[in-house]
Design a protein around this nucleic acid. Structure first.
Lengths: 185, 185
DNA sequence: CTGTAATTTCAGTAATTACTGAAATTACAG
DNA sequence: CTGTAATTTCAGTAATTACTGAAATTACAG
C-alpha cells in the first residue's frame, strides 16, 4: 500500500507514542495504519508497507487481537486474512478502556483487597500501612464503580455526560439550594 | 528500613505493574515504598531497603520528581535529602492524570491539529484519511475539555461527581421530561 | 483428501533499556 | 571559605525486549 505523507506522519506518531503506553512501536504503527486505511489489509501488505518482517506483523496482530481491537475479514476464493479496525471510534475507545482497566486496575484492586483482608494489624506500624492501603483501595474502587456506571451508558448519553462535564454538578448545586430554600419556607 | 511482609507485597506489585505503565520496575517500587513509609526516607535508605544501587535510586528520584510526585524534606544539621509522597492521595491522582495527559494526550492532539490544518484534501484518498483523523481529533478533544472541567472541581465536588456517576444523566433526563411536560401544558 | 498458500512458532540475534560503580559535581555544616 | 558528605552524571555492562528468518503448523481451494 502506498502511504501519503499525511498517513506517514500519523503512523510515525503512533509508533512513538506506543512506547509511552506499554505497547511497542510495531503495534502502534500497525494499528495506526489500519485506522487510516480505507480498506482491510492483509498481513503481507502490512509487512510490506511498514517494512516489518512477516512474523513481526503476525505477533503484532496477535497482540492487538488479544486487546479485541481488530476485526478480521475474509473474501471468498481468497484464503488470506484481512484486518480492519472497528468503524465506530467509540467502540475502539470503550474496548481500549476496558482492556486497560482489566490489565492494570483490576489486579491492583485484587491485590489491595486481599492484603486488607489477610492482614490483621498486629502493631502500630502495620496499622499505618493498612491505613495507607485502605486509602488507595477506596480511591481506586470509587473510580472503578464510576467507570462501571459510564460503561452502561450508550454513546449518545455518554457524549452528553462528557459534554456537560462539571455543569452537571453546578446544576445539582442549584437544585439543592432550591430544595433547601423550599424546605425553609 | 525493615519491611513487613505486607509492605513487601505492595512494593513488589507496583514493581510489576510499572512495566504495564510506561514506567520501570525501580521507579514503581520506590514510589510504593515512599507511599507506605510512615516517615520521609533518604536516598541511601531507599537504596538499602530495595537493594538498588545508590545511582539507580538517584535516577529514579529524578524521574519521579519530573512527574511532580515527590516532596523533599530537609532536617536542620543534616544535609541529606528526605523524600515523601504528598499526604493527600487525591493530589497524587490529580498530578498523575495531569502529567499523563501532558505526555500522552497533548502531543497527539497537537499532531492531529497540525495535520488537519496543513492538509488540503487533494484527492479522494486524502479526504478519507482526513475524515478519520478529524474523527479521532474530535473524540480526544471532547475528553480533553471534559477533563479540564473536572480539574477545576475541588476534591469534595469531584467525589460527588464520581459517586453520582450516571445518576446525573438519569436526573437530567427526568428534569428534561418535566420541562417538556410543563412547556406542553 | 491433498497440495499449497498462509500463518504461527521459536530459536537466534539485534536493539533498547535498566542498572552499576567510579568519577565529577554540588551543597552545606562548621 | 573549606572540607567533606551527599548527589548526580556517565561510560560500561547486564538484562530485557523487539525483531528476523527458517521451520512447523494450520487451513482451505480444488
Amino acid at each position: 500500500m502506498q502511504l501519503t505523507p499525511l498517513m506517514n506522519d500519523f503512523i510515525a506518531h503512533f509508533g512513538e507514542m506506543g512506547s509511552h503506553w506499554g505497547i511497542n512501536r510495531t503495534i502502534g504503527q500497525i494499528y495506526a495504519l489500519l485506522y487510516v486505511s480505507p480498506k482491510p489489509l492483509s498481513a503481507d501488505v502490512i509487512a510490506k508497507t511498514l517494512s516489518f518482517s512477516r512474523s513481526n506483523v503476525s505477533m503484532g496482530i496477535k497482540e492487538l487481537d488479544s486487546w479485541r481491537l481488530l476485526k478480521t475479514k475474509h473474501y471468498p476464493g481468497d484464503r488470506k486474512d484481512y484486518f480492519t479496525v472497528p468503524d465506530d471510534i467509540w467502540l475502539i475507545i470503550r474496548t481500549l478502556f476496558e482492556e486497560r482497566k482489566k490489565r492494570e486496575v483490576d489486579p491492583t484492586l485484587t491485590m489491595l483487597r486481599s492484603a486488607l483482608l489477610d492482614a490483621e494489624a498486629g502493631n502500630q506500624e502495620e496499622a499505618q500501612t493498612l491505613e495507607r492501603l485502605k486509602e488507595m483501595h477506596d480511591v481506586i474502587e470509587l473510580f472503578d464503580s464510576w467507570y462501571a456506571d459510564m460503561e452502561k451508558l450508550d454513546t449518545k448519553k455518554l457524549l452528553r455526560y462528557l459534554t456537560l462535564g462539571s455543569k452537571l454538578i453546578k446544576f445539582l448545586d442549584a437544585a439543592e439550594k432550591l430544595t433547601f430554600k423550599k424546605s425553609n419556607e
